[in-house]
Each structure stands twice: as C-alpha cells, then as structure tokens.
C-alpha cells in the first residue's frame, strides 16, 4: 500500500531569538490525512516552530518544504498564496475582536474569493454549523466563552477549505469536557474534511 504523499517536510530547521537558540536540527515529515503532534514542556519552542511553519517567523537555518517548494525561499506574494492552503487555530483563538463571529469566518472568503455575499453567508453558516456555533453567528467574540471562541476559531481556520490545519495548543485553558469535544472536532476535521469521499 502506498504511503500518503508528504505535504510538508521540515529539514534541519533552526530557530532562535537573537543569540538565544530555541530549536536546532529539527526534521520531520507531515503526510496528507495524518495528525502530527509536537509535544514538549512549557517554553520549549512548540509555538515558535509552528510560527515558522505558517510564515510568522523566519528560521535561522534549514528548510520548510511545502510540497516541493521551499517556503521561505519564496517571495511574500507566493508565501501568501501558499498560506491559503493553511488553516490556523491560534492558542487564544485570535478572533478579530471588532467583528462578529460570522464576520470573522466570512472575512477570508470576502478577501480571497469573488463569491457573492449570499453564498458567503451560507458558507459561513455551514462552517459554524460544523463546529456547533451557528447560533453565535452574530455575537461578538467578547460575548462568547473560551471554548466557543476556540470552536469559532476552528470554523475560521477551515473557511477556505485548507489542505493543512495547524492547532496551537487547542485545548489550553479549556475544561476537560470541552477539551474532549474539541479533540473530537479536530479528529473529524482531520479525517472527514481533509479527505472527502
């Protein structure tokens, strides 16, 4: 049986803040349809590694290959195009606080697609429905709980139907029950959304 294709390869990656080395010689492959977890103690550089993989922090050494392309060797425009294959759920959900939950999910579609507003609205309802947040479409991020914010962040992350979903400590700050539900949701996203049949 053939192995799924590799969609991201990290080769000898080094990360540092000034003279302080955070990571060095990090290498791994991510395959389509798989769930890959990076674990470690607090402050060991997990989020920093994630940031370098999604274009927020340039590594000091090594390569990140997305498909066959060296991500950090591309220009800004190309990196932005590659980023559209990514969906990211940040540790704090990072919902844009001046927008409603629905607007948060809709903004990437408005910016990067030419879909009419009514179609975008239906898609937003769909994405929020996936995460059980359809009733909160018109609420502001400050009006919902931490778990709901995470789910709304997940709905935004899958707004553009990305190939790869990144989660930065998705269950941080959540109670065990909410955390377990979010884990189920992530599993569903990883299996059913990534490989629709």
């Amino acid at each position: 049986m053939n192995e799924p294709e590799t969609i991201i390869s990290v080769r000898d990656l080094g990360l540092s803040f000034g003279p302080k080395i955070i990571q060095q010689n990090v290498s791994f492959d991510l395959r389509r349809g798989s769930i890959f977890a990076v674990m470690g103690g607090s402050g060991c550089g997990k989020s920093t590694l994630l940031k370098s993989m999604i274009g927020l922090l340039r590594p000091t050494a090594g390569q990140i290959l997305v498909g066959q392309e060296d991500y950090w060797a591309q220009n800004d425009k190309r990196r932005t195009e590659i980023n559209h294959r990514f969906g990211v759920l940040f540790q704090s959900a990072a919902l844009w606080s001046s927008m409603t939950v629905g607007e948060n999910v809709a903004l990437p579609m408005e910016m990067f697609t030419s879909l009419p507003p009514d179609v975008i609205r239906r898609l937003v309802e769909l994405k929020l429905g996936f995460v059980g947040m359809e009733q909160a479409i018109d609420l502001m991020p400050s009006e919902i709980s931490g778990g709901m914010r995470k789910r709304a962040g997940l709905a935004r992350a899958i707004a553009l139907d990305p190939d790869i979903l990144f989660f930065d400590e998705p269950s941080a700050g959540l109670d065990p029950i909410t955390s377990a539900r979010l884990d189920d949701l992530i599993l569903t996203c990883g299996t059913d959304l990534a490989q629709p049949s």
């Binding site: 932005t80 559209h84 940040f90 990072a94 844009w96 990437p108 910016m111």
Partner: peptide, 17 residues
C-alpha cells in the same frame, strides 16, 4: 497592542490580509 497580544495580527498575516 491588544490585537498583537491576542494574536489577531498574526491571524491577519497568516491569511495574507
């Protein structure tokens, strides 16, 4: 500053906005 602390700026950059 609040947006920076809440990673909202990061989210904008990742989406290419």
């Amino acid at each position: 500053s609040t947006m920076l602390g809440n990673e909202e700026i990061d989210a904008l950059q990742v989406f290419g906005i």
